[in-house]
């Protein structure tokens, strides 16, 4: 056994091959810098897909249940202020916001339970809670409620998309939601796997760059090549005619190549003028 080992390691070529092909503790020479993406918390609007937050409301307007009250129209300013949002608890403002969103999407005047009305209500609730979580970041129950509700909304949007695509598009546009489906395979981000992906991307980039430069090189050679081709074809035709042999190169063939050259030059001139 020792004899074999000695024989293997004494040969310099085999020893270098062994070092090159080792997989354990392999270090790449490429200078790829991997930056771990920052975690987006589940209660963040970037995660739930809400593009707009809950707006600021005019505090002088009445609470929702007193908005149609006729007595308040003739009441004095102090009473009006008492029934406004200014002195009302926060959930009264949220109630008004939810009502606005539902009214913007509901099917008919009595509608509260259709899928679009439900999603509008949940959207309002999510945005109100996202606003609140900024003030109370340690309220775990609130964070859980946001996560659960936004997941529920996403699930229902998934179903709506399957049933009625046009309505789904209209709804996400009206409510300003971004819909991204879940990825097929959900894996935790690791340094090793990310570096592998980045290395593959790097290799693809190199390949594409080289292909592009080669294509440009060939395209640059095209006019010279075509001119040479015309000359060669003319020469062959002339020789064949002079030697009284069967003529294999037709005049139309030569004209076609000339036309091709003209088109190519014209195309390049157009491109240059466009760039200028």
């Amino acid at each position: 056994m020792n004899i074999i080992r000695r024989a293997v390691f004494s040969n310099p070529l085999t020893s270098t091959l062994l070092i090159c092909t080792r997989s354990y503790a392999f270090k790449s020479n490429l200078k790829i810098k991997w930056v771990r993406p920052t975690k987006i918390p589940c209660y963040d609007p970037a995660k739930s897909g809400d593009l707009v937050p809950m707006p600021e409301f005019d505090k002088t307007q009445f609470q929702l249940e007193f908005q149609k009250c006729k007595e308040l129209a003739s009441a004095n300013d102090l009473v009006k202020r008492l029934f406004s949002l200014e002195y009302a608890p926060r959930h009264r403002t949220t109630q008004l916001y939810l009502r606005q969103l539902i009214d913007g999407t509901k099917r008919h005047n009595q509608d509260e339970g259709s899928i679009e009305a439900k999603i509008a209500r949940w959207t309002g609730a999510i945005r109100a809670m996202q606003d609140l979580v900024k003030r109370f970041p340690h309220d775990v129950r609130l964070r859980v409620r946001i996560k659960e509700l936004s997941d529920k909304r996403k699930k229902q949007l998934k179903y709506l998309r399957r049933w009625d695509y046009k309505k789904f598009e209209w709804l996400i546009d009206t409510l300003n939601i971004v819909y991204k489906p879940h990825p097929i395979d959900f894996r935790t981000v690791t340094r090793k796997e990310s570096l592998r992906k980045l290395t593959n991307q790097h290799c693809d980039d190199i390949k594409n760059d080289r292909l592009k430069t080669y294509r440009l090189q060939l395209e640059a050679e095209q006019p010279d090549f075509l001119q040479e081709k015309i000359k060669a074809l003319e020469f062959i035709r002339k020789e064949q005619e002079e030697c009284n042999v069967c003529v294999t190169v037709t005049q139309t063939e030569i004209d076609d190549v000339r036309q091709q050259l003209r088109n190519l030059l014209q195309k390049r001139r157009d491109l240059n003028t466009k760039e200028e």
Binding site: D103, G104, T105, K106, R107, H108, N109, Q110, D111, E116, K166, K167, W170, L171
Partner: peptide, 11 residues
């Protein structure tokens, strides 16, 4: 929807 009164903002 028509019986209940379709809203203007509805889909």
């Amino acid at each position: 929807n028509r019986i209940y009164g379709k809203t203007a903002t509805a889909f």
